[in-house]
Write a protein that binds this DNA or RNA. Structure first.
Length: 378
DNA sequence: GATATTTGACCTCA
DNA sequence: TGAGGTCAAATATC
């Protein structure tokens, strides 16, 4: 793969150093903000000022969003506690989205190289650089006969359409959406929705960037007031060492995010997902994540028929792979995390569900996605 | 009024 | 240069 790397030896390490410091600083800040958030969430809202409470929430959220954004701008390889190293060879093995039609599709060319841009003058390159480091993953959602295929499938978040484009060779135009809270909370999440050429009941939804906003699909029961997040992942061993283990966790998370009581099967090769829909609707999702560094090969999480809110049943497949977006430069030490967050503004008690040290989720996983009782369909 | 969508112009990469 | 992505003015919806 194309590695055009310049400053490697001297300046690189120099940069690396600064970068690491900066990242560490930011991470620290973020953690503190999280703690604050947590504290706030446990602080009984003054009877007098429910408004203020909301404001506080929002403010904290904004702070967090800023950290998140800053971190993801920095992002790219060599964040901070990157101790492990892996063979870079694998990175090249980009497993583009399996089910994507040959011609179209992304995986953005192997032009990666983070730092390269950072050196140049900011203005124009900054934006570009940011864009690169944004994670992206894809879901394929099939709308079955039962469900109204209204709007690009409600995934529980509210999006605002900001563009539409005819795509070369694609039958249907591609829609561009961004999080409604972009301007309010600086949430940079976006998604693209494209109807499949051959199967018009399938929509390919590409998400980009995580939600940093307060928006969330209500968390199921669980939410108790004690900081004992049931599902919480085991406290990460001091360091956010992200490796296969982490990746597994990520899956765990992913699964956990899908309500309990789901029948989940994890396979190794995502090729098969033909779950017949026992009842009404069927949704097949393919998640093609990027940014999992220790290449998890492609793991597929397959969920067989789980019942959803409305008694409809979906079957979906999660397939994740590297999207071409992942850089190809030799040293990638990215801290992936399986972050979970989701606090809720809506529900009175924000279920901030994670112990403090729960490290970062610089731009992380698609975990956020949930079919949720509250928001899905309807 | 605010807030969402549509749509052609504009920008950025390859 | 053109395909893909975004902006923003006009328009629609409430």
């Amino acid at each position: 793969m194309a590695h055009h790397h310049h400053h490697h030896a001297a300046s690189s390490s120099e940069w690396e150093h600064k970068c690491g410091g900066l990242a560490a600083e930011l991470t620290a800040g973020r953690e503190v903000a999280k703690q604050l958030q947590l504290i706030l969430s446990f602080t009984p809202p003054q009877p007098s000022s429910s408004e203020q409470a909301a404001t506080r929430e929002v403010l904290v959220q904004k702070i967090l969003a800023s950290y998140e954004n800053a971190l993801s701008m920095l992002s790219t390889p060599r964040m901070m506690p990157a101790q492990h190293h892996h063979d870079d060879g694998d990175i090249g093995t980009v497993v583009m989205m399996k089910s994507s039609p040959p011609g179209t599709r992304s995986g953005s060319p192997g032009s990666e190289d983070s730092d390269h841009d950072l050196f140049k003058d900011t203005t124009s390159s900054r934006k570009r650089n940011c864009r690169k480091s944004i994670p992206r993953w894809t879901h394929q959602v099939r709308v079955g006969p039962g469900m109204g295929l209204e709007g690009p499938l409600d995934d529980g978040f509210s999006w605002r359409k900001y563009g539409q484009k005819d795509i070369l060779g694609a039958k249907y135009p591609r829609g561009y959406y961004r999080c409604t809270l972009r301007n309010v909370q600086g949430c940079l999440a976006t998604k693209q929705v494209q109807r499949s050429d051959d199967d018009s009941t399938v929509f390919e939804i590409t998400y980009r960037g995580r939600h940093t906003c307060t928006q969330s699909q209500s968390q199921s029961p669980s939410t108790s007031s004690s900081p004992a997040p049931n599902n919480t992942v085991p406290p990460p061993p001091s360091e956010p060492a992200m490796t296969l283990a982490a990746d597994d966790r990520q899956h765990e998370q992913l699964l956990l995010n899908f309500r309990n009581g789901l029948n989940v099967v994890v396979t190794d090769d995502g090729s098969e997902f033909d779950c017949s829909p026992p009842t009404t609707a069927t949704a097949a999702s393919t998640y093609a994540g990027s940014l999992f560094f220790p290449p998890p090969q492609d793991a597929t999480v397959m969920m067989t028929s789980f019942s959803a809110p409305t008694s409809s049943t979906y079957s979906s497949v999660y397939h994740h792979s590297f999207s071409g977006a992942a850089s190809s430069s030799s040293n990638e030490n990215v801290n992936i995390s399986y972050g979970r967050e989701q606090s809720t503004t809506a529900a009175a008690a924000p279920p901030v569900d994670f112990p403090f040290g729960n490290m970062d989720h610089l731009f992380d996983d698609p975990t956020t996605f949930t079919f949720d009782n509250s928001g899905f369909f309807s």
